[in-house]
Simulated assay, not measured.
Amino acid sequence: MQKIKLFTDSTSDLSEKILKEHNIDVVPLNVIFDDQAFKDGKDIKTDKMYKMVEEKDKLPKTSGTPPKDFVDAFKPYIEEGYEIIYIGLSSELSATYQNAKLASQSLDGKIHVVDSKNLCVGIGILVLKAADFIKEGYSSEQVVENVENLVEKVEMQFVINTLDYLHKGGRCTGVQNFVGTMLKIRPVVKVVDGGMILAQKTRGKFKKALQNMLKNALKDKEQIRKDKIVVAHSMNKEGADYLKEQLEKELEGEIIMTEAECVISSHCGPKTVGLAYLKK
């Protein structure tokens, strides 16, 4: 019987409970403050990262997983006769995908590297579907084919509570940050073709922005698959709980809750809430 081992990276933001339940291993990205490097989700958690940002008044740098880390993660399983499937962060957003490809070429084994063309729990949904396919007895080639066919069906969007982190990261000017803060602008960011676009701006309370994001998602709710719906948040359980409650009123099926790790949180900032699902 074919032995398959499933990997993802820390930006998939799946909880430890979910990872353990589905036998998924994580190869983390790096979070760097000055001369200190941390493995995302292992050496540093989101609350500590936010505290360090406040203390240093600057964002950490983030870097893709180097090829050596992939080799170290994959090699023990290759030696035990496993085939590897790795599903990671969009190649449009990070060198991590290419580094995984480089690592796979240096190992004598069957390793499949899949570009999710997504981030956060948009990746997580694909990883969970891959785990389902493995449990159903599909070969590694069939699992990869099925997952790649789902890539374009993943919808991922999130509401940002503060523009400060976009400003610190150079993604908006000081004037935009000032005006946006004064007017209480809550951007809705959507993942499209592996990159991120500004989908909507809501002025006012954060809950209003969540409601607008949900309204847009539910415009064609008959096309939303009920088997994989995920709500993610960065230090905003209250907002995530509210979104989950509203989804449960409109959709049947299990809604998975999870928290964003450091790499994603360092770009979007605290209180962010995201929604991901598959279209039929």
Rank of each mutant, 00 (worst) to 15 (best):
A131G: 06
V147W: 06
D34Y: 08
K20P: 03
S140E: 06
M52Y: 11
G269W: 02
F74G: 00
E152G: 09
K215D: 13
K51L: 14
L247S: 04
T62Y: 02
E155Y: 12
D132K: 15
G81C: 03
D193Q: 10
M196T: 13
I185K: 05
Q211N: 13
S140H: 03
I224H: 05
L107G: 09
L89E: 00
A217G: 07
L275W: 05
V113W: 05
Q2Y: 05
F133C: 11
V191S: 08
V192S: 04
I160P: 06
K190Q: 11
K280N: 12
Y82V: 00
F70K: 10
K17V: 12
S63Q: 08
Q36F: 08
G253F: 07
K221D: 10
E252S: 15
Q98E: 14
I264P: 04
K110Y: 02
V121C: 11
R203E: 09
E238M: 09
K129A: 12
K39Q: 12
V31Q: 01
A103C: 12
S106E: 13
K208G: 13
A100V: 09
V147D: 10
K48D: 14
G170K: 04
S234L: 08
I264F: 05
D108Y: 07
E250C: 08
L93S: 04
V192P: 03
E238C: 05
D47N: 13
N236D: 11
K45F: 13
C172S: 01
L166E: 03
T173S: 15
